[in-house]
Amino acid sequence: MKTTIAHLKRGEKGIIKDISIDNVPVKLFEMGCLPGNEVELLQVAPFRDPLYLNINGSFFSIRRETALLIEIEKLNETRAL
């Protein structure tokens, strides 16, 4: 099974690998949700939906169904910047 943003735990980070282009709106690309960028899960609402993210320095929340379309690779440790 693919790892997506929805599989992150609170406080975990990942690198965006692939995005299901046909289903993800252009707006998300423009918010910085692009392959290669780092994503951090900051907070989850009850039932793990929506998800509050920091992608590429932008803070926003998206629904779980959208998060499932964005494939990532988890970063195991929190890197010091």
């Binding site: 289903n23 709106p25 707006k27 998300l28 509050y52 932008s58 803070f59 929340s61 959208t66």
Partner: peptide, 11 residues
């Protein structure tokens, strides 16, 4: 249509 939701969390 399918719904899409994105809300910026400002400072």
């Amino acid at each position: 249509t399918k719904s899409f939701f994105m809300v910026e969390m400002p400072n």
